[in-house]
Each structure stands twice: as structure tokens, then as C-alpha cells.
């Protein structure tokens, strides 16, 4: 999927800087300030996006570790015991999430790109030197995989308005499988 926020933000900032801001009434302070803040906010988002997942995992790791320490330190009355029980449960749940969050988004994307490339190489190789039967089989497999993937791609971009019959495309949240729990 080429349409990713960082790429899109870059084009928005350029359009704002080169086309929109110069066309604004430069004496309209509110409009000028809002436009500059729009660019600033987009730049901030662009900087945060690639690190957001790591940032959150980093904090979760720290909280889980701190919970482990607090569990042994928090010895007092009934209220504290109840709070510790709650902390144990949320720490266990947090540790479970962390144990499943082992790959960074960039690694997942890299794996996707590598598999796309090696799948494409297989297709080309089979068409270059494979039998008719092998070519037919590979064609059927790639078409079937593409059909499922493209339904998701089209749903992902439904709001853009390219679809002749938008109602025929399911909403993206109904098509994406949830991340399996360990």
C-alpha cells in the first residue's frame, strides 16, 4: 500500500507552503497563524508516526516493570490489597500484549515488501520456463490472493470515491483480521 500518511503529509505540506499560504490574505493574522500551525502540526505528526508504536511499547515496558516492583512494595490495608490485585491483572495483561508486540511496524512492512518481491520473481520465473500447467496454477493462486488483498485495498481507500458501486465494498474494519492473542 503506497498511500501512507508520511508520504501524504509531505505532499500536503508542500501544497500548503507553495500554493495555499501565498494565496492567503497575508494581513489576516488568524488565517496565517492557522495555516502555519497546520503545517507545524503535520510536521510533528510526520516525525511521530514512525516512532509512535515504539514509543508506546517503551512506556508499556516501563509500566510493567514498575508494576512488578510495586507489587512487592505495596503492603498495607485492604484497599491496597485490592489495588495490588488489580495491578497484577493489568500488569499480566500488559505483559501479554508486550510479548505479542515483538515486531516493529517497519519490520512488518519490510517483510511484506520482500515477500511481494519474491512472489513476483516466482511468477516471472514460472512464466519464463514453467509448463502450461505450472503457469495456470500460479496464475490462479496469484489471482485469488490478489482478489482478497485488493478488496481490502479498495475498502481502505473507499472515501476517495473511486468505486462505481461503493456499497458493494465492505467497511475496512470488517475485513481486517484481529491480531491473534497468545
Amino acid at each position: 500500500m503506497e498511500m501512507r500518511p508520511q508520504f501524504q503529509i509531505q505532499t500536503i505540506i508542500k501544497a500548503m507552503t507553495e500554493d495555499v499560504i501565498p494565496a492567503l490574505d497575508q494581513t489576516n493574522q488568524l488565517a496565517m497563524q492557522s495555516a502555519q500551525l497546520t503545517i507545524g502540526t503535520l510536521m510533528l505528526i510526520s516525525q511521530h508516526l514512525p516512532l509512535e508504536y515504539r514509543y508506546d511499547c517503551d512506556e508499556l515496558t516501563r509500566l510493567v516493570a514498575t508494576a512488578e516492583v510495586l507489587k512487592s512494595q505495596a503492603k498495607a490495608g485492604e484497599t491496597t490489597s485490592a489495588a495490588v490485585a488489580c495491578l497484577k491483572e493489568t500488569a499480566r495483561s500488559g505483559a501479554d500484549v508486550l510479548s505479542r508486540a515483538r515486531a516493529e511496524p517497519a519490520e512488518i512492512l519490510d517483510a511484506i515488501h520482500k515477500l511481494r518481491a519474491s512472489t513476483s520473481d516466482i511468477v516471472r520465473a514460472v512464466y519464463a520456463e514453467g509448463s502450461e500447467a505450472a503457469q495456470s496454477a500460479v496464475q490462479a493462486t496469484v489471482l485469488a490472493m490478489s482478489k482478497d488483498q485488493l478488496l481490502r485495498d479498495r475498502s481502505w481507500l473507499l472515501m476517495q470515491g473511486w468505486e462505481p458501486d461503493p456499497k458493494a465494498v465492505p467497511a475496512i474494519d470488517t475485513l481486517l483480521a484481529p491480531i491473534a492473542k497468545g
Binding site: E2, F7, K14, D153, R154, W156, L157, Q160
Partner: peptide
């Protein structure tokens, strides 16, 4: 658009979305 080579990068970035419908 990635390399900022046109006067309408934002339009090109928008247009590439039609590629998935065309792929299908």
C-alpha cells in the same frame, strides 16, 4: 510526488489511489 518533482504533488498522491481499483 515522493521526490517533489511536480507542481501538484498532492494531486498525484491523491490520484494514485485509483490504482487499486484498476488493479482489481
Amino acid at each position: 510526488a515522493r521526490n517533489g518533482k511536480s507542481h501538484q504533488d498532492i494531486l498525484l498522491a491523491w490520484l494514485l489511489g485509483v490504482g487499486y481499483m484498476l488493479l482489481d
